[in-house]
Every structure is written in C-alpha cells, then in structure tokens.
Design a protein around this nucleic acid. Structure first.
Length: 487
DNA sequence: TGAAATGTTGGGGCG
DNA sequence: ACGCCCCAACATTTC
C-alpha cells in the first residue's frame, strides 16, 4: 500500500454481498485505503417488510461464519455489530478514525430509504462510496424507449441481453494475499453467535443440514450445476423429485455469489444463451427474472405490500376470521389434504426451500382456492425461505395472484391434481414429503379422496376445500373487480 | 410458467 | 353404399 492511498482507513459495510470475489465495494476500498475494516451490522429492531425471516437468519449465521473465515485467511477480521446501523457506523468511525465507508447498493424501498439517510449524515464528515454489487444492470440504466420502466419480462430480457453483449462480464478478482491485512485496533467485539441468528429450536439445525452456505460452496455448486445439470435444465427443472435446478437462490440472496459471476460462468461454457429451448437459455433467463424483480421493486416500491394492478385493492378476499386463519394455518403446516400442496409446504418447512414449480402450485392454491390474500403467503415464505428476497418474493406472489407486472391472469388457476399428475407422475415427491400417502397407488396419489373411504390413509386429512367449487368461487370473486368490457 | 368448456373432424360400428 | 351416431383426438374459446 503506497502513501498515495486516498484514505488511511476505510470501512467496508457488508450487507447482502457476503463474498470477497466480485465485490466492487471491497475492491474500491482496497484500492483507495491503506487498511480495510470490514463490518456486518445486524439490526434486530428492523421491523420493515424487508427484514428477514427465521430461515434466512439461520442461513445468515453460517454465511457470516464463512465470510469471517475468509477474511481471517487474509489476516483481517470481520467485525460484528448489533443495533441501529447509523449509530454503529458512527461509533466504528470514531473507534477506527476511518475516513471512508464503502458498501454495495440495495434496491428495496426500506433499505434504500435507510441507506440514503445514512449516506447523507455520514457524508458530512467522511467519504461514502456505494457500488453496484447486486445487479447486472441497475434500474436507472434500463428503460423502455419512452423512458418508462419495463413491466413485461420478455422485452426487458431482450434489452438486458443486448446491453450485456456490449459489456465485459468478467467478475472482479478476489483480493490478492497481503492486500487486506489490518492492524487497526477495534474495541467492543461481538461474536457471530451473539447475534442470536440461529433459532433456538433444533429446527434450524436440521434445516441447515440440507445446505452448504459460504462463498466457496456457492462457487462449487455453480460449477457442478453448469457441468452436470444445466443441459437438461429446460425439462428437469419442472420435476420436483429431481434435483434439476441450481439451488443457488439462497447464495444469490445473501451475496455469496453474484449474478455477474453466474452470467460470466454461463457465458464461459461457450453455449449460446439466446438459443431457445436449451437448458442454458432457460437458466440465464432465471437470472433475468431475478434482475427483473429488483427493477420492479425499485420502480414500483409500493408493490412490496400493495397490488400493482389497483383493481385488486377491492378484491373480495376471504374475511380475516377464525375460519380463514385456520385455513391459512393448515396451508402453512402442509395439512390441506391436497398432496402436492402439502408436500411443497412440508418441504419448505423442513429445508427452508421449495421447488419453484411447486411454489407456483401452492401459491395458486392459497390465493385462488382458499381466497387468502397473497400478502399472507408472501409473509410465510419470507419467514421460512432461506432464499427469501423481498423483490423476488413479492414479484412471485403478485404473479401468482394475477395482480403484478407480467402476471399470470387471475383466471389462470392451477389444478393441483393435474399439476401433480403432470410433474410428479409416479408421486415420488409427494411420497417423500407426505409419508402418510406411501401406500396409495399411483393412480390416486394426487387425489386420495377418490379412493374408497376404507382405503384412504387414516392419518391424512381430507381436502380443506373442494377444488372445483372453490375454483368457481374464485372466478366469481374475480368477476366483481373486472372492468367493464372495453368498447 | 392453465384448465375447462366448447367446437370440429374423422374413423368405425351399425342398421 | 349410405346415413347416423358415438367418441376420441385435436383445436379453439372462454374463464
């Protein structure tokens, strides 16, 4: 480090970017500071909708441990703080005499508001540098011809691909040995365990046994996926009993791997990512959906809690009473009596994750068969998913409810029996998560209620609602908010 | 990234 | 050989 460095000491505030490689804020800090002080701040009072749920916190615990380990290998140390981020940063600035703070930007409304308030206060005394470590292209760089934001995925994706073809996707290298060494002393240390991120019940432990958090594990998972599974991704990703998806969503959410790293790795396979019907194209498109979700939440911040399509604010949802809350609870616990729905909800609770095909099925069931507002489902997913991301979660639920941008029309109601028969033909997925149904023959595995009463498993509930009748009720409810026919 | 209802067509059984 | 009906298979429309 030369004496030409702009700052003696700079703070790098880690948030949703828990990695050393391809980290623009860290890279900038190393370039501009003699010493880097990395910190993570947990804000337990953050009651906003973007605050993370229990499953994500368990994941975060391990991701932080992994980041701390990596920093240690560079003779540095991840500082752990708890409290209001502004207060903690100010204290740390005083402690270290740092003169610069670096972080990577976030785009959900709550974080954006918090960050800009912090930036304006800190900027009075130190330099604040924020970078793009989350997105391929930031929301303000990508708009329709008339300057308004995209609301439809396909044109958005075309435009994004065009922009990517003109830019170098090569990720930033991880810091070289010796460039991160820190000697500055810091007082009042907390250990990661002090944050209480792990749930007290042993639920957290069994859930995390399905996962390998951390930057190195994510990189390994990506390269394995691209070597072995991506070829058949287009078809295999729809079959929940097969591990045909990348399972990188939690690592992407916590930032142990970046979208840029994923896209670069995709490109490096040499395959044409624009060739329709190929696994690689389908996979790249999923990265596009993540990008699209973040753009939507940036441009339409109210959609975090309100439907984008305002007709839905007068939708006649089921009343918030005991009966409805009971139905919601049975959905949450995987006790609806619909096998594919229950399998999905149990997979979610056990592993902190649910196969995406099944996410669509359980969402359609909650919103359309039970007529429960999508916000209830969104909240449960936020609480239980290790990959819970405000933007993706909200977009997914608004898609399922038919109230979002480029959403499935409300009348597109999934029939969970047909979905099961189509994507879980032999019932392997259902049997795995709903063992009560183990002995039900394939023909009835997705509709055990059609078995003669005496052959139905005694310990499995009968259906919460009739699928045909509830579908018709949903269509009737929808017809009340439809606009009069256009001339 | 639907499903159900409705419409159309064509082969085959049958009188 | 013909008309009629049934119904699968597919296409289109509607929700």
């Amino acid at each position: 480090m030369s004496s030409k460095a702009a700052h003696k000491i700079g703070i790098v505030w880690f948030r949703q970017d828990l990695r050393l490689s391809d980290n623009p804020a860290l890279k900038a800090a190393i370039a501009e500071c003699e010493q880097v002080v990395p910190v993570f701040i947990d804000d337990p009072t953050d009651g906003t909708i973007s605050s993370i749920g229990e499953a994500s916190r368990a994941w975060l615990h391990h991701a932080l441990a992994s980041l701390a380990q990596s920093l240690e290998e560079h003779d540095n140390e991840l500082l752990i703080r708890q409290g209001d981020p502004l207060t903690e940063l100010e204290a740390l600035l005083a402690d270290t005499a740092a003169t610069a703070v670096y972080w990577n930007r976030a785009y959900d409304p709550a974080t954006k508001t918090r960050d800009s308030a912090i930036k304006s206060v800190l900027s009075e005394s130190v330099q604040v540098i924020s970078c793009n470590g989350l997105l391929l292209v930031e929301p303000w760089h990508l708009a329709k011809g008339d300057g308004s934001p995209y609301r439809v995925f396909t044109p958005f994706w075309r435009r994004l691909l065009a922009m990517l073809s003109e830019q170098d996707l090569k990720p930033l290298a991880a810091p070289r040995k010796g460039t991160l060494e820190r000697r500055a002393k810091v007082t009042a240390k907390l250990a990661i365990a002090d944050l209480g991120l792990l749930p007290e019940r042993d639920w957290g432990e069994s859930m995390m046994s399905y996962w390998a958090p951390g930057e190195k594990a994510a990189a390994k998972q990506l390269s394995r996926f691209l070597k072995q599974q991506v070829t058949d991704y287009d078809e295999q990703r729809d079959i929940p009993s097969v591990e045909g998806t990348s399972r990188l969503s939690p690592s992407l959410h916590t930032g142990e791997i970046s979208a840029r790293q994923v896209m670069f790795a995709i490109q490096s396979t040499g395959a044409d990512i624009t060739e329709k019907g190929t696994g690689i194209e389908a996979y790249a498109r999923e990265i596009g959906w993540r990008e699209f979700a973040t753009h939507l939440i940036y441009h339409f911040p109210d959609t975090v809690s309100e439907p984008l399509d305002s007709r839905f604010s007068r939708f006649p949802w089921a009343p918030d009473n005991k009966t409805t809350r009971d139905k919601l609870q049975r959905w949450q616990r995987g006790m609806t009596g619909v096998p594919i729905v229950d399998a999905g909800m149990r997979e979610l609770y056990a592993t902190g994750w649910m196969h995406n095909r099944v996410r669509m099925v359980v969402a359609s069931y909650l919103v359309k068969n039970l007529l429960i507002p999508w916000q209830r489902g969104e909240a449960w997913f936020r609480h239980t998913l290790v990959d819970a991301d405000v933007a993706s979660n909200v977009m997914g639920w608004q898609w399922a409810a038919g109230s979002g941008a480029d959403a499935a029309p409300f009348f597109r109601i999934f029939n969970p029996v047909l979905q099961g028969e189509k994507f879980d033909k032999a019932g392997e997925y259902v049997r795995h998560w709903v063992p009560e149904l183990d002995s039900v023959p394939n023909r009835f595995i997705h509709k055990p209620w059609e078995l003669p009463k005496s052959d139905q498993p005694a310990d499995y509930p009968s259906p919460l609602v009739d699928l045909k009748a509830s579908r018709e009720e949903a269509l009737a409810a929808f017809s009340t908010i439809k606009l009069p026919q256009q001339q």
